[in-house]
Amino acid sequence: MLSLKKNRAANAASQPRLVRRILIGSTVLFLGLFLLLPLIAVFAYALEQGGTAYWMAIKQPEALAALRLTLMTVAVAAPLNALFGIAAAWAIAKFEFRGKNILITLIDLPFTVSPVIAGAMFVLLFGARSAMGGWLLDRGIQIIFAPPGIFIATIFVTFPLVARELIPLMQALGNDDEEAAVSLGAGPLQTFWRITLPNIRWGLLYGVVLCVARAMGEFGAVSVVSGHIRGVTNTMPLQIEILYNEYDYVAAFSVASLLALVSLVTLGGKKIFEWKSRQHIIDQSAYSAQGGPVESTAS
């Protein structure tokens, strides 16, 4: 009965075979041409002159210096934004207060700011010509055209990523588990470590992965604040630009392929995260079916 009904519905909701083929064909062609080909090209051009040339390009001191600065930037930006993401999600998901929607909009704000404008803001704030920049320079602290400027610009650009993953997740999970723990006498830190963190760990991990990938690949904002000093303030994307503009294509694509690999990791991470969170919800509902507490807000 049910399958019969489903079948009829499927017929009514489907296109003639020819239309379907045209639609699938244009999807494959469009995505292949615009997404797959540029991705394949990165690796193809990087390996154009063989593995040795590829390896030599990556081992160059300037490329290694760029890699080091990029990793340092990640090491500064990701933990800070992860901490912020957890704090913001805790405040927003666990409590009711006025202006919550405004706060969420403000957290998303960096996504609407062009990276170049983001970099420009920090030059205006910390540049040698600004009051604060001049004051800091007198004390020997240089922000713009130095690594700290790159760190701050990157923090700005990756600011919402962890919070954005955690806020909806923690809202969906609800407060029941934590309230139970607290009423049974658990302290705040204990509640967080034992109850909240295990519940949100995949979302947190995925948010951090996104943050790391974006921090490694940020170009526009970092470009404005870096000053392009070779071996000192060049991150990997800036190094790619220099190599490319010097017509050293193999080297440019070799460094680029490392970043492309990172982006493939994030794409895989997304699939794993989706799978894990589905599994988590299934586990929870199986638990409820056995007579455990019912998730009231999990929707």
């Binding site: 690949g217 790619i240 680029a256 699939k271």
Partner: peptide, 30 residues
């Protein structure tokens, strides 16, 4: 293909930039 849709979010813009430029330059594949 579905997973690939997110590639432009994940791939650094400079990497996309040099790849597209090389592909579409007169000597490139496209």
């Amino acid at each position: 293909l579905d997973g690939l849709v997110d590639l432009p979010f994940a791939l650094p813009t400079a990497v996309a930039g040099i790849s597209l430029t090389t592909l579409y330059s007169e000597k490139g594949w496209l």
